[in-house]
Nucleic acid binder design. Structure first.
Lengths: 247, 247
DNA sequence: CCTGTAATTTGATCCGGATCAAGAATTGAC
DNA sequence: GTCAATTCTTGATCCGGATCAAATTACAGG
């Protein structure tokens, strides 16, 4: 991925301006009335930049802050008993991370940076203080969790229903849409994750994922050069993915 | 299922006593300090009894209350474009329903009773009032949603990883554990859902589910008489399911 | 630029679960 | 109780994706 949410990187722990953030409409403050947004903003800290492969959260560690990715992308996964990775999904800028930690106070998954990654954090004690006096934020937190739950249910349902090419098509259509919402070209992007990561996410083998890319390429739906993807026939992909079609 | 949470059914809209409810430790009030539990209790209404097959919530309708099943069981599902059911899971007494509705203010799935079902409800406007002044309830709501999210992630990961017999084994092990927590015999129960429902939940065909039951029966792990199940070798099931083993 | 390593593509074979097709058992209505 | 409708089991065949095995391409480091 070639995403950077703002041009200029300020110092490590500088206070962040949500007001000017390109991600504002996707992030928490975008759904809050102005006074609440300001109050929230004062509690937001910026996390240090992470190099690819580094952990943003580790499963089992105390959930001490609400985290939102600011630039770059990440992989959410759990380690199985056999030591393999169970890939839950991929995180793009403006998306929160580790929400399942509310269940126990400890994060339930690993989240690793796939590219240089920066993020924002709201310490839990500050969040609790804010929740006491900001009704909009209370609603927003419930909305955020509800949305994460809805997405997890949707993804699970799709796994149970769709065949290999359908899953890959849907994966690409979904990525495409998320890029679009962030203002990036939806039909021309670079995958930050490996074929193996995609395969583990979709419950397939990396060979099958590769073959799906192959057929889409052969049929003229996609241009594939390693991790650089151009979507030539979004309609065909969406149809195969079984998306209600936004035409 | 042969579960009834309390012996006596009071009138349709009577005020419910959480204090004496058998499900208290599994439900919201069980995790709250006594004063908050009392405050919550005053907002709880009892829903009318539903006959098998009736809808507890419909997808797309306004989420006007937080719902918890009190007795009986239910099926959570979505209707696909082709008109088939995508079964997300099954609801047992003490479990909340329709939490994904927080995403948009409208329920995201259908929930239908599988047996005669009774439930409790907290109207949304009362919930919001309570959230304003009960910090424990705020934490509890986040916990509840986090837990639902964690479970959805887990279920999705299992679908991606496990083969047919493993999925059925895990389904049974999971049911068994949930029965146990509710004080019901964990190794002797009646399934309230059809093989087809189980199959759609696990991303299999009903024939494959039936064959899995068949092999478990043949191997002496299970006694199967239609929907009556006796688990003879919980250890074997758990091992096949890949459960960390609670021995 | 070259080189070694990792990632990806492509090919051949095999197997688990889907599909098609009967039967058998269970349940509910009368 | 009997009967009809539904649900469940069991069998036979087929196919999509897993697995095993190279060959090719991309990429980081010198």
């Amino acid at each position: 991925m070639n995403i950077r949410s703002e041009a200029i990187e300020t110092g490590a722990h500088a206070c962040v301006s949500c007001r000017n953030c390109a991600l504002k409409p996707l992030c928490l403050p975008g759904h809050l009335p102005a006074p609440e947004a300001r109050a929230l903003e004062s509690a937001v800290e910026r996390g240090r930049q992470l190099a690819p492969g580094m952990a943003l959260v580790r499963a089992g560690t105390t959930m001490d802050a609400l985290l939102v990715v600011r630039s770059g992308s990440a992989k959410r996964f759990s380690l199985t008993l056999e030591g393999t990775e169970q890939v839950h999904g991929f995180v793009l800028p403006g998306e929160a991370v580790g929400l399942e930690g509310f269940a126990t106070g400890r994060y339930g998954c690993e989240v690793n940076a796939l590219e240089p990654l920066s993020y924002c954090r709201v310490p839990m004690h500050k969040l609790e203080q804010l929740l006491e006096r900001l009704p909009g934020l209370r609603r927003e937190m419930l909305r955020l969790l509800g949305q994460a739950l809805e997405e997890a249910l949707r993804l699970r349902g799709e796994l149970a229903e769709t065949d290999a090419r359908g899953r890959v098509a849907r994966f690409l259509a979904d990525l495409s849409e998320r890029f679009a919402r962030r203002g990036f070209p939806p039909y021309d992007f670079r995958l930050s994750m490996s074929r193996a990561d995609i395969a583990r996410h979709l419950g397939l083998t990396l060979e099958t994922v590769s073959r799906a890319f192959g057929t889409f390429k052969r049929d003229g739906w996609l241009r594939v050069r390693a991790r650089d993807i151009s979507v030539l026939r979004p309609d065909a992909l969406a149809a195969l993915a079984g998306v209600p079609n936004c035409a």
